[in-house]
Simulated assay, not measured.
Amino acid sequence: MARLELKSVSKAFGAASCAKGVSLAVEPGEIVAVFGPSGSGKTVLLRMIAGMFEPDGGDILVGGRSIVDAPPERRGIGMAFQNFALFPHMSARDNIASGLRATGAGDIAAKVAAMSRLLKIEHVLGHRPRELSNGQKQRTALARALIGNPEVLLLDDPLRNVDAKLRYEMRLELPSLLRRNAAAVLYVTQDYREAMAIADRIAVLINGRLVQVARPEEIYARPASVAVARLFGDPSINLSEVMPVAEQGRMTAAIAGTQIRLDADELPSNTRCWLGVRPDDVMVTRQGGDGAIPARTVAVTPIHERAVVLLRFADGSEWLAALAPEALEAGPDEDVFVRFAPNAALLFDHATGDRIGLPARRQAA
C-alpha cells in the first residue's frame, strides 16, 4: 500500500478559495478524518485527490508519485460518496462490480461475493438501489469503493444519510474494516463524534485552511484555537473574557468578580485572554468558598444521560454545565455556586484566538 501526501494544495472557484496551501500526509493503514463546518472545503479537497478537480497549485502524491496529471481511473483511488451515487439501473451486485469491469480485473464474481459477505449484504445483491434501505445502499457504495483494493480510499461523509442506529453501529465497525484493507484513508465528516470515533488523527479544516492535525484526544484536550474548541463538544465550550494576574507565585483570573486559580505559570500577567471550560468540567453545588462563583440556574434540560444546566452569573454572562442527574443539587431558578478544577481551564489569546500553553487535560468523555 502507498502513502498519500498533499503538498501546499490550493484551489479557488472565482473569488472563492476552497483550499489554501493544504499540506497533509496519510500513511498506509491510517484513517485521517477531515473535519470542519459546512463550506470549509472538505469535499473539494477529496475531489482534487480523486481527479474530479485540478488543483490550482501544489502537488498530490500517492506512493511518492505525483498523480495530478493522471486520469482518475489510473490513480489507484477508491471513493464513496455522501449520496451513495449508485447506478439506479444496476443491481447491487453490478454496482459493486462496475469498477472491476472498468479496469478489466479478473475473477469478478468471487471478489463481489467475498466483499458482500464482509459487509453483510450478500442477501440483497440482486436488488436495485430503489429496493435497498439507506444502510444497504451505504454498504453497497462502500463495497464498490473497497473491492479494487485501492491504495487510497476517500470517504465523503458516508454515514450522513443513514439512520442514527446504523450510524452508531458503523462507527464501531468501520475502523476495523478499513484497516483490514490497509489503504490510506481520508474520511470527511461534519460530525465531531464520528471523527473522534473513527479516525487515528483528525485534520481540522476551516475556511480552506488546515488549522490543526492531531490525535482525537489531543484536539479535544488541547484545541489550537477558540474556533477549534467550539467545534468539539456538545454543549459547546464556555468562554469568558479574563485578565489573568500573578499573585503570590500563582496565576489567578476573575470570572464575574470571583478570583479563580489557574494552572498557567508560563502565562504573562495582565494579558487579555479568553478562558474556556467545557460544560462536562463544570460543577454546580450549593457550597460556597474559595473559587466558587455565585450563579443562578436559569433552566435545566435533560439530554440523554445528562442534565444540561444554563447558569447566569451576577454580571449577566451565562455558562452551561453538563451533569449526571444525580450530581445536580438544584432545580431551575435557584442560587448555586460554580466550580471547576484549575487544570480544566483552557486559555486563548484574546486577539488571535490561539491557545496559550497549558498542562494536559483529561481526555474526552
Rank of each mutant, 00 (worst) to 15 (best):
P175F: 13
N238Q: 10
M170C: 10
A141Q: 09
A183P: 13
E247H: 13
P150H: 15
I202T: 03
R222H: 14
R167C: 15
N238A: 11
L172Q: 13
D263M: 14
R286C: 13
L267N: 05
L178A: 14
L155P: 07
N181Q: 15
G148C: 15
N238R: 05
G276Y: 04
T252Y: 06
R167E: 13
A253D: 04
V211M: 03
Y192T: 01
L239F: 12
L166K: 10
E217N: 09
P175N: 11
R160Y: 08
D200K: 12
D191G: 02
I255V: 14
A221M: 11
P244A: 03
D156Y: 06
E247N: 07
A197E: 04
Y168G: 14
L159C: 08
S269H: 06
L186A: 04
A199M: 06
I198P: 04
R171K: 11
M196F: 05
P150N: 13
T189R: 04
I237D: 00
P235C: 04
R215M: 12
A143D: 03
R261H: 12
Q248M: 08
L146C: 12
V162E: 02
E151W: 15
Q287A: 07
E151I: 15
T271G: 03
A253G: 08
R278M: 02
L153F: 13
V188F: 00
A199L: 06
Q287W: 00
P158R: 04
A256H: 05
R222S: 14
Y187V: 08
G276K: 01
R286G: 15
